[in-house]
Design a protein around this nucleic acid. Structure first.
Lengths: 233, 233
DNA sequence: CTAATAGTGTCTATTAGACATTATGTG
DNA sequence: CACATAATGTCTAATAGACACTATTAG
């Protein structure tokens, strides 16, 4: 059936990479969007990403990083493959594929770069979900949100959306935004302490009331999974 | 920087889909391998899959299904995207991408088809991991195995590798193979009963000793996640 | 002092682990 | 009856939820 070389006549789909980059700023969850400067979907906002350039990109992750650095100026501390969408209807140019990543980054480390570029902005997640976005990017954002919600239930990896040093209250609030439900302070702190996931910097942060301890992620925090999840909403 | 239309000059990588299809047969975990009939890697065994044909495939899942049906004759009851690998070194022909799926299927439903095709076979997972496979397929199988291990800890989705009707003992043994550790019978049955994931067919299966009840998966079994995992090995 | 926020003590409820016991079939 | 396997009873251990309580800062 399959004569050798037959595949050489098959057209290849367009291959892109898109990232859903989350951050936590001013007590809300935001994602980075880019205003498209070229067709198709010119003028609409969409995810940071673009076409895989096989001349310069070593692998798919390299494409994701190249595009994220273009928009933010820095490497995200957390980058994880989400899902790959491919069909003949998602892009008007025809059959296309996008390999999607979820990324996390502190707002502060790219504040300068982002504020100096006009077509890039952090937008609150809930607002994003009411915008008219390019291609199937809203669907991708929904998937990423759900993935982050799961992560918040069984790990503390969402913390990579915070600055290097952060308080437990901030980390908990971020988790609450993702889960969509209040968490018991005691439960949250206990499990983190028992799993030994954070490093106490000794520094404190003050802002009305008792000063809060600043913590830093330990290496194992990126892979640790709690045996028991927090309850879902 | 990016002149419009510039992307049109960028070469596209080769796009394929590969599936790691698991089944449970004769008390062991097996995966379906295919002997490659054409270059590259001709003669080596690899995963069932192939090039996305944008003329016939509606989306990526359709490619996965088309290739699986080609080899097994039937639709798998469980098919889930695993990960996408893409770089310039995994295929000697140059930059290539493979979108990988994990699939589960009962041995019996495709027994006839598989036994009548010479280049397709079910091979025990542990043997597979000692074979010299095509491309980076061994790495993909390792990922799929790890994914299935996690699923066995917090769900009963591995059960889709069993026949339509199955005993709890078979389901537990399958989980034990995936987790690599014995499970307490009481714990295993309790959580399934409490989550109401199985339908009691009323039928029994006898094979030395007390006859075992045959169960069927309920719809919710495919999405259910237990709040608390089984302990890891 | 009060207000505000950080952090702890402690009880309950749930559920997995451990393992003994009972149930139901064959020969 | 013995034997094998299925299914259940029941106790313990671990940990999340609930919520009251104490600690530490500013003003």
């Amino acid at each position: 059936m399959n004569k050798k070389g037959a595949h050489k006549t098959i057209d290849k789909p367009l291959l892109t990479v898109d990232s859903v980059l989350f951050t936590y700023h001013e007590k809300s969850l935001k994602i980075l969007l880019v205003e498209r400067s070229s067709t198709p979907e010119k003028g609409k906002w969409g995810l940071p990403g673009g076409i895989v350039n096989i001349a310069v990109d070593e692998d798919l992750k390299a494409t994701a990083l190249r595009k994220l650095i273009e928009k933010t100026g820095v490497n995200p501390p957390y980058l994880d493959q989400l899902e790959t969408l491919g069909n003949r209807s998602r892009d008007p140019r025809g059959w296309s594929v996008t390999v999607c990543y979820t990324a996390l980054m502190a707002y502060q480390v790219c504040e300068n770069h982002v504020s100096h570029v006009s077509d890039v902005d952090w937008i609150e997640l809930n607002k994003v979900l009411n915008m008219d976005l390019a291609f199937d990017h809203k669907k991708i954002i929904h998937s990423a949100k759900e993935r982050m919600r799961q992560r918040a239930l069984y790990s503390i990896t969402p913390g990579f959306a915070l600055p290097d040093k952060f308080t437990l209250t901030d980390l908990q609030h971020l988790h609450e935004l993702l889960i969509g439900k209040q968490i018991q302070k005691r439960s949250f702190r206990r499990r983190i302490e028992q799993a030994d996931l954070l490093f106490d910097t000794g520094e404190k942060q003050q802002e009305r009331g008792r000063p809060a301890t600043l913590y830093r992620m330990k290496k194992q925090a990126i892979t640790h999974r709690f045996v028991r999840n927090l309850e879902e909403s």
